[in-house]
């Protein structure tokens, strides 16, 4: 099953409408806060979708980057740095971590990276818990200042809704652009056949590191926004279960398109509600869903939707690039 984008401008437009519409509908409702979290997750999951969907790599410890972003932003703003700068720092630091881990690991087989990301996750957790002078340990860090852009301080659910969803929208837009761009196509080529890609002049290791660093940076961005929204963070929020949930969100939403990140984030928010009566069994259920999705729905729900759309409309979708340059597909 091919994973390509179907007239992305239309989907982006629909997304924008949905964001506006949801606000108008739910304005004042407690669900708005759930949607703020969904936006934040969408930002992080976009990184995972790009990593796995575009390049076939798996990150099993992405919550570590989420956490580094959150703590960096929190610490800097508590020390008086303006939040915008703190976010920039969070992005830079997580991106750097991604590059540092990526360089040695991406030369090896994919499963080494996967297990190493898990190891990284566990190290991070133990550092967050153990480095009390800086992170205040397991009891967490409170009183994180609210977000602010210049002089405008972001207060209230509505304001955070717009802040996070605009950023999420930009991330999806960026992801869509990247997918169809020269680098994105090169990454897809690498995913199919690394040796053939190298024979085209593509520096395979360099690109793999770049996309891994980007996905880490996106997690850092999400983490930064998260810290200021919830104003209290603790290490347990950034542990292996959180990483697992993020990966589940990406796989379930669909790694074939950045829009899958939106679906995945919404599902992550909705699933606990569905699983509520079975709350103790949450991890078990997530594990089972995870296995089922990996085996039977490799492109997630977004893939399912794309597939049914194609079958309903009969015939082929235009290729990603034809859609971009506006050329109509030539004949059958």
């Amino acid at each position: 099953m091919k994973a390509r984008l179907d007239r992305p401008q239309i989907l982006l437009g629909l997304l924008a409408l949905a964001i506006i519409g949801a606000f108008l509908l739910l304005h004042g409702n407690y669900l708005i806060s759930a949607l703020v979290l969904a936006a934040i997750y969408a930002i992080v999951i976009t990184g995972l979708v790009l990593l796995t969907g575009l390049n076939g790599q798996y990150s099993l410890g992405h919550a570590a980057f989420f956490g580094i972003g959150a703590y960096t932003s929190a610490l800097l703003t508590i020390a008086g740095v303006p939040p915008l700068l703190a976010s920039a720092a969070a992005i830079a630091i997580t991106g750097a971590f991604g590059a540092i881990i990526g360089v040695p690991l991406l030369r090896l087989r994919g499963y080494y990276l996967a297990v190493a990301t898990l190891a990284f996750q566990l190290i991070m957790l133990s550092v967050l818990n153990g480095w009390r002078q800086v992170t205040l340990g397991p009891s967490g860090m409170a009183n994180i200042p609210p977000y602010a852009i210049g002089r405008w301080v972001v207060r209230g659910e509505s304001a955070y809704y717009w802040l996070t969803w605009i950023v999420a929208f930009l991330c999806i837009w960026g992801g869509v652009n990247l997918w169809r761009s020269r680098i994105g196509q090169a990454l897809l080529a690498i995913k199919s056949d690394e040796a053939a890609a190298a024979a085209m002049g593509i520096n395979v290791s360099a690109l793999k590191v770049q996309i891994f660093a980007l996905s880490a940076a996106l997690a850092g961005l999400g983490g930064s926004l998260y810290a200021h929204y919830v104003t209290f963070i603790s290490p347990e929020r950034f542990g292996p279960i959180a990483s697992f949930e993020l990966l589940l969100g990406a796989l379930l939403g669909g790694v074939g398109t950045p829009f899958g990140a939106i679906l995945g984030a919404l599902l992550l928010i909705a699933l606990p509600e569905v699983v509520a009566p079975l709350r103790d069994y949450k991890v078990m259920v997530y594990g089972i869903v995870f296995i089922l999705v990996s085996l039977y729905l490799p492109l997630g729900i977004a893939g399912l939707i794309q597939g049914t759309y194609v079958r309903l409309c009969g015939g082929r979708r235009p290729g990603a690039l034809a859609a971009q340059t506006g050329k109509t597909e030539a004949g059958a």
């Binding site: 996967a114 697992f244 990966l247 296995i291």
Partner: peptide
């Protein structure tokens, strides 16, 4: 590997 990860959480 991914499937066994799911199994680990189960």
């Amino acid at each position: 590997l991914i499937v066994t990860l799911g199994g680990a959480f189960v």
